[in-house]
Design a protein around this nucleic acid. Sequence first.
DNA 1: ATCGTGACGAACG
DNA 2: CCGTTCGCCACGA
Length: 107
Amino acid sequence: MKEDKPNFYEIVYKITKSIPKGKVTSYGRIAVLAGSPRAARAVGYALNALKKDQLQEVPWQRVINSQGRVSFKSDTTRAMLQRKLLESEGIDFQEEGKIDWKTFGWP
DNA sequence: ATCGTGACGAACG
DNA sequence: CCGTTCGCCACGA
């Protein structure tokens, strides 16, 4: 008997999908929930591997780094898209593009 | 099995 | 405050 053991990716996607609208979380937080507190990098890697279909289902935009900022290099289309999507959900960005964990942090 | 890579995190100066 | 450095984990070739 074999249990289908979900890959780390699947766990990440599942957790990401469970993020309620209007909230955000960090890679490290997801790593903890996924069972590997130090696998923040792997989490980012997993989200980077999202397929086009998943981009519509997985709210990857709600996942940011521990600094409360978007981690991309800054000019990428995805970074702007992320900010736009988050603002669209009611997330408020501070001066430097930072997000207040007290208000929008999840859990 | 080893190596390289990556949307990270924390610590250091 | 910033940039740098090291460590961590998982995946593909």
